[in-house]
Design a protein around this nucleic acid. Sequence first.
DNA 1: ATAATATGTGAACACTGTTCACAATTTGAA
DNA 2: TTCAAATTGTGAACAGTGTTCACATATTAT
Lengths: 208, 208
Amino acid sequence: MKTRTPRERRQERTRHDILTAAIDIIAEDGADQLSLREIARRIDYSPAALYRHFDSKEAIVDAVCNEANRRLGDSLAVVPETLPPVEYLIELGMAYLRFADENPQHFHFIATWQIPMPPDVTREDIEQAADNPDDPFSRLYRGIQRGIDAGKLHVRPGYGALEMAFSVWALAHGMAVLQTQRLGRMPIDFPAANRQAFADFITGMGSA
Amino acid sequence: MKTRTPRERRQERTRHDILTAAIDIIAEDGADQLSLREIARRIDYSPAALYRHFDSKEAIVDAVCNEANRRLGDSLAVVPETLPPVEYLIELGMAYLRFADENPQHFHFIATWQIPMPPDVTREDIEQAADNPDDPFSRLYRGIQRGIDAGKLHVRPGYGALEMAFSVWALAHGMAVLQTQRLGRMPIDFPAANRQAFADFITGMGSA
DNA sequence: ATAATATGTGAACACTGTTCACAATTTGAA
DNA sequence: TTCAAATTGTGAACAGTGTTCACATATTAT
């Protein structure tokens, strides 16, 4: 049964309207202006009606986060995987920063919101999840492994692909947070400096 | 006139009580449980009374942020400045991460809250502020400069001490954010991995 | 003693997320 | 077609939030 009933289609459409309204509010007025009443106002529903489609505001915010994460994946997808490993990792980081710069509200939202982690994540889980072609972290993870395979990144005891991926992610994330929220007005040519920082970090990870 | 009037002493004490209550609430129940009414309840005032001492909740939060920043400065101060530059920078980063790990609520608060930056910051401003011995960023900045002077860090066109300090700060900040809020349950030996990442980054910044 | 200032309060306002009894609609089956 | 069941939307209410304001009290300075 691939085709859905009218009711399910309407339900899906309403869910979509709610999320679209939420995303618009965030983009226009910022995340702290997001309220159930404002969402309801925009889509001509009563505030209580939202509870027929989402369990809570938190559920709506989670859905918005997932959508933002999907868009981040799209932004990272433009980096061609045919690039040599080192260049690929640098461009991946730059794409991450571009996303944060062009969608500051959404990025701040992602960066701020508490995402509960599944309590136990094993290395096997991560290996398997790495197959997901669109997941942002998986993209980075595969890029790191290509760098290792090409001999450009140097594995050390207790410091393998996962640790490298985490560290590079942390560098990019920290840059994005500081630039969008805090130190963005410093007299720095951020794109140039960021590119150099990525290059230095990857160089350091490749030294014997 | 160094000695203050009784009224000023009471005023100062009340301000201190308010901030202490706010910090306690954050430490005990988390930043989202911080409300003026709960602060007032704890110090036996009416909510309206807080407005005789602070302009708004935001003003209270700003003061808490400053206090948290001061404590961060204390945590960084334990790293002896007599260490060789590279080791000093690594230990400074580790101290930053230790602070975030041991005061997750306060760190999340600092990391989350929007601090408005003075609109224009010049290099001269930063050079002067670098004299402040206790400011966390200044500490890092001076450590970077020691590394440069010792020939351990390699200055490039458009990538000097300020850019290096910003990048190292970003790496540490990103690690702290991800570990305390997001990926802390990954199967990684974080202290060891973080140390290696700092070392790699600094190595990379020293390569010709 | 008196006028000026500072400090604290209760009540109210406009918000927020959430719940709930109730009505209207849509659905699936007899 | 009829009828019961499930779904969807609503207004009202509740407890909570930050904030304001007229009013009373207490402290200071003249």
